[in-house]
Amino acid sequence: MSSRSILGLMYTMRGLRSLGEDPAPVLARYGLDLDRLDPGARVERSLELRILVEVAEQLRDPMAGLKTGPFFGFAGYGPLSMLLLTCADVREAILSGVRYQRLTYLYSTIRFEEEESGLSVLSLAPLPLPWRAFRFRVDGEMSGTFKLVNDIQKTIGTELRPQRVDMPYPRPAEAAQYEAHFGCPVRWDQKEGRFWIDQALMNLKFPTHDPAAHALYRNLCDQQLVDQQRELDNLSHKVLLHLELFEGRPPDAGRIAEFFGLAERSLRRRLAQEGSSLRGLVASARQNKAQQLLRHSELSVEAIAERLGYSEPAAFIHAFERWTGMSPSRYRAER
């Protein structure tokens, strides 16, 4: 599996914590602390899914998945959110969402069809998972998709509420709360999750339509898909992604080896076979995060040094000059 932004996992975990659930023990088993995760990091999809499955097993509220949907921020979709807003109409926005679904936080496969009945249907085919995880993911993805549609309709000023929603599991005791959440009838025990929408809404124009900006964001989304395809499924890449999850001092070699189910000596040997080293990967992770923070935040150099786990700013400045040939202040000024 490829990697993706860690924001989806953060939205879900923070939502659960706000709802009174406690995902911390599961995250701790993977060496993660929700309050120390870097929003700019990426996470292996397989690791994220393992965490979600384990968290689902210890949830107290069976509707926790449905309730996490509203915690997903529209801006968190990055260029995709702007691509959708600059579409010409509702139909183009939905088709764009389907085309670039790999840039969303879904594990379901989505498709869009226009029926002869005068209704359009957006379908989500879920992954086969253990029951508790299945309901948690279906509810979260249906609710998150519903939140995305609501965010778009707030911008264009049009009501896009579905006429009916299908859910792919038997009717639960809380069924009435689902109808209240979606604002429409819900059918249970269906093959897939589905949103049924009046076809007449597909032609509604977006006041935010901007062909030039749309082309720009489409190119950015295309590049993200290319980057996903280019990710190498090797240990060095996985270790780098793991290191970028952390703020502060990175985990030591023993903790990293334990995370990947290896002896420390085996970890170092395999990295060497791939032409890398743990020391080099730690430096790469720090450099990537430092450059991102200098470009996209107003944190002081001292604060960035602390966030990257340096005991004093001078050590960070020296390391940054070695990486880039310039000081952090100059790098920020030039960008």
Rank of each mutant, 00 (worst) to 15 (best):
E21F: 04
S18P: 09
L271S: 13
L95T: 13
R135L: 06
A24Y: 11
Q101G: 03
V282M: 09
P70N: 12
W196Q: 00
Y100F: 11
A319S: 15
L59N: 06
L278P: 14
S120L: 06
P251F: 03
A173R: 09
G118I: 07
R330D: 03
L119T: 14
L241R: 13
P128L: 09
L160Q: 00
F246N: 00
Y11A: 06
M82G: 08
E113Y: 08
E258D: 13
Q190N: 06
E306R: 08
F74A: 06
G97D: 01
P313W: 03
D189K: 04
A319Y: 05
P313D: 14
V90G: 11
A305E: 04
T155S: 14
F72P: 00
W196E: 03
P128A: 14
F112E: 03
E274A: 09
E312Y: 13
L220K: 05
R322P: 14
L37V: 03
D61T: 05
E114G: 04
A176N: 04
R230K: 15
G97W: 02
M202C: 11
S3Y: 02
R187F: 08
H181M: 02
F206L: 10
L243H: 01
A175G: 01
R42F: 13
M202A: 10
F260G: 10
L127P: 06
T86G: 04
L240P: 05
Q273C: 07
Y331H: 15
E54L: 09
L124E: 00
Y11E: 01
Q163P: 01
G65A: 06
G78R: 05
G31V: 12
A303D: 15
P328N: 04
E334R: 10
F195E: 00
V98P: 13
L243E: 03
R135N: 06
